[in-house]
Amino acid sequence: MTRNSAATLFAIILVLYLSLWGKWALATEYELLYIGPENSSAYRGLQQGLDEANHQGQFLGIGFSLRTMEFDDYVSEKLSDPIAIIANVETEELRQLIKATPDIAIMNIGSASDSLRLACYPNGFHILPSEKMLADAEVQWRKKNPNSSAHARAWHHKFKKYAARDLNKRFSARFEKAMDDRAWAGWAAAKIVTDTLARQGISDHSRLLAYLKEDLVFDGQKGIEMQFRETGQLKQILLLVDDDKIVGEAPVLGVADATDLDSLGHISCQH
């Protein structure tokens, strides 16, 4: 072998080695499945959450992508199992999805229906506050402020505390829209799934489901750590909003213990 061809061979081996090494060193990629309309507040929130997950992921060698489908297409096509499904669909469609894919975590960002919580599906995770949680928050609020016409919300674009200001700023800078309840739910669903995947190195959808149910501790930029109840509902503080102004938070101090998130909504499956 001449000196030149030896050098060429060495160069080829080097290039091969580097490209393979590059592959191994490349990010672990996760694909999440979104079912619902793209032109929606919840979807924008989901994109924001995914962006933030990829920002985190660049430091950890992990990447996330999103596949989107309409509900009817998902039902007619047979897909290989996604790691998790984020669903922005109506109550009955969600029920169908949950039943059709019992070992995949379904993150509900479209329905506040109490019936979905009370059914205690093992794979249903409800990010939006339930109707009962919203009603309980308003009852607590009116005990203290009988003449107030405030309504309970999961989120508000003027919310500043607990670094909510930072999230509102990031969202409105990207979409030129105010972040609302559904946008927050989309963002939270993305962050819950992606932070868990990054943290636990989970590649299996049923392991992800078990972790979310048992071990999740989530920072939803609302101060108190959040977990899922056995009903699948995400515990969270709520905001009382009157005339586009935040007038209070629930649990309402003086009426309930401010850290007792269980004063809002159905808390267990024993009923």
């Binding site: 933030e52 985190q56 670094a163 932070d195 990054a198 501790v217």
Partner: peptide
């Protein structure tokens, strides 16, 4: 805080040499 990371910048290169997932916020 919002990425749940501890970054270690190493000197004299000013390069991040480690990124560690820690508790929430």
């Amino acid at each position: 805080e919002s990425s749940n990371l501890l970054h270690i910048i190493e000197l004299p290169d000013y390069k991040i040499s480690m990124n560690i997932l820690v508790g929430s916020r």
